[in-house]
Design a binder for these strands. Structure first.
Length: 262
DNA sequence: ACATTGACCTGAGAGC
DNA sequence: TGCTCTCAGGTCAATG
């Protein structure tokens, strides 16, 4: 789940539930999910403080505290947030639990433990340390920047799009959608795209990600012409009805329509 | 410089 | 029903 649109939905969720509420207690249940900072320091940095804003870059969510620090969350393949009051309603793989003075809780749930929790004092520094490329929805990521990113890759377009160092936020699921909407095969070489295909792909990145956010990253809400709901065994192309192909591209399962994507 | 594989983890679903 | 196998939206390191 957690690609750019999902993380943006989490960010907005955090905005609407967890800002300006003083944190009473932080419980870390799975200590090795906290990286780069000792757990005691994470607790000390959050407890008694409140979040004042949030930010996002690619698949990372940042929550600014009132003490110059930022909580950084990555969601791996399975993480999500849940804000709730009754402790009985806590999610099944809760790895960290924040409790606010208002009696509510914010849980970070991560079944497969592939996410991570850390702190930073400066979001820009964090992004450059991780060597993340521009956020896919940032205005700074324009057609020229996209051409440059593609030019830096000698591999498949799929690999280029999913390379967080080139452009941040696109994962396996949404890259398949982006290629489907652009009518381009994911296994095409990045270098082989002509100007027209490059522009189509660029437009598709922006359109698909924005549309997904509008629909709360909920596959059921996506337009009928979208591939994602059909991205499964025996899936049919929502545009021409033929059977979708499933192949490994750059090591990841990829679904596409060989008729609609040339 | 690239693709591939396996590791990290857990559990859902398929297949028997 | 119950068991085993395969696979999964992310990233990283080792290998070819």
């Amino acid at each position: 789940m957690p690609e750019l649109p999902d993380v943006e939905v989490f960010r907005r969720y955090m905005d609407s539930t967890s800002l300006h509420k003083r944190i009473k207690e932080v419980q870390v249940h799975t200590r090795n999910m906290v990286e780069g900072t000792p757990v005691w320091k994470l607790k000390a940095t959050l407890e008694g403080h409140a979040f004042k804003s949030t930010d996002r870059h690619g698949k990372y969510l940042f929550a600014e505290l009132d003490n110059k620090n930022w909580l950084v969350l990555h969601f791996g393949m399975t993480a999500f947030l849940k804000y709730f009051k009754d402790l009985e309603k806590n999610p099944p793989h809760e790895r960290m639990l924040l409790t606010f003075y208002n009696g509510y809780h914010l849980a970070y749930d991560c079944q497969r433990k592939l996410g991570k929790i850390t702190l930073t004092e400066d979001v820009k520094d964090f992004i450059s340390e991780q060597e993340l490329g521009p956020d896919a929805l940032d205005d700074k990521f324009d057609l020229a920047a996209f051409r440059e990113a593609l030019g830096a890759s000698r591999s498949t377009v799929k690999s280029a799009l999913m390379n967080q160092n080139l452009v941040a936020g696109i994962g396996n699921i949404y890259s398949d959608e982006i290629f489907f909407q652009a009518g381009i095969q994911p296994k095409a070489k990045a270098q082989d795209l002509d100007e027209e295909a490059t522009e189509r792909l660029f437009q598709s990145i922006k359109d698909v990600l924005k549309t997904a956010i509008d629909k709360q990253a909920n596959p059921e809400e996506l337009p009928g012409t979208y591939l994602i709901p059909h991205r499964k065994k025996n899936g049919k192309c929502p545009k021409c009805g033929s059977s979708l192909k499933k192949e490994k591209v750059s090591g990841r399962s990829s679904y596409f329509c060989s008729k609609c994507q040339s």
